[in-house]
Design a binder for these strands. Structure first.
Lengths: 195, 195
DNA sequence: ATGGTAAAAATAACGCCGTTATGTTACTGT
DNA sequence: ACAGTAACATAACGGCGTTATTTTTACCAT
């Protein structure tokens, strides 16, 4: 295992165990058994490590969407990927906060990291295509994908917030998937409408 | 104008002009023409100042919802408050990122600040009540309020993200309000269903 | 095997950050 | 006039991301 991989592993573990705020250059390098300078030899500083974790996070999201591509019923497939999405947001809260964090300590993803985000979105657009008639324009599919993503992300984000603590997790999950289902069915029905 | 007010004004301006990352204790106190220690005399450090700005941000949201209470048609009132919400999120991006930021530099709101968040949510629950039949349970109203908030916040949050740059602002606003309208009408129609 | 060279490592420092210990000023009530 | 208190400044502490300098390591041609 190369030192570069050690650093990435240490960073990923820290993110999972102690959250985004614990991700300091010193903490990462200490856990990897190296000095801080290693992060500047193998990556472009902290930014470089965060870029890797960012891409890692969006790969999780992308897989959540793609893993249901074998299902026959488009609506059922969409619901299953919605459930996967919630599971990933729950079990990888650190990654999720990194990729959707509004302030992340001044972090803005690099071009490559942003490309990973767009790939995940593209996977969702492809998935949504199956809910719409074949002749649907790309703009229409994009809007449908954004709508579904906004619903899922909106619920996840509120859940991480003070307001989200009104309900326990199970109730929250049921409510989220129900709202998601309504939107999916609405999209699947609206063959001739704008969204 | 007291020194305490000077500090708050300086912090609010900095948040509006340069964003959350520029909100350092030194920057705030320098703009207020004071030394850093003033922030520890009048507030409980940076946390105290952020708590005030946090409450300020949720007061904006609360007013956005309440300002339409005089309208007659419940559906139209809901749509108007949705539009207000988007306007506020656009014009006060710093405040918005503070109150919904996932990582805010380790900031977690105090109990009083969290109370301001709950007040804003309560205003939304009251507003949603008008869309539902009188005998609706509190749980049902809460779920409807969360659903509408999740939609608005989901779109706003994606807009602040790399993914949101697919569309220009006007298109994005239209799309968001259209999705919001569909949800409002669905809630207004679903008099006997669970949400 | 040996010497030279380049990569990779550590040490120590710089300038930020939030915070605080210490000291100084200005005002209040007696 | 004097004590007490509140508000202020100066200077420092430890932690952060980063980098200049130095040392070690590894490899390759002779």
């Amino acid at each position: 295992m190369s030192n570069k991989d050690k650093i990435l592993a240490a960073a990923s573990e820290l993110l999972l165990e102690k959250g985004l705020d614990a991700l300091s250059v010193r903490a990462i390098s200490q856990r990897a058994g190296l000095s801080t300078i290693a992060i500047y030899s193998h990556f472009q500083g902290k930014q470089g490590v965060l870029d890797e974790l960012y891409a890692e996070g969006f790969a999780l999201v992308r897989n959540a969407v793609l893993s249901v591509s074998s299902m026959d019923d488009p609506v059922e497939a969409a619901l299953a990927s919605g459930k996967n999405y919630l599971d990933i947001a729950l079990h990888n809260e650190g990654h999720y906060r990194l990729i959707f964090g509004e302030t992340g300590g001044g972090y803005t993803p690099s071009d490559e990291a942003a490309a990973a985000a767009r790939e995940a979105f593209e996977a969702l657009v492809m998935s949504v295509t199956r809910l719409l008639p074949d002749e649907s324009s790309r703009a229409l599919r994009q809007r449908a994908a954004l709508r579904l993503w906004a619903i899922l992300h909106g619920y996840v984000s509120l859940r991480h917030h003070v307001i989200g603590t009104v309900l326990d997790y199970r109730q929250w999950q049921d409510m989220t998937l129900e709202a998601f289902r309504l939107a999916v069915e609405q999209i699947n029905r609206s063959e001739h409408h704008e969204l």
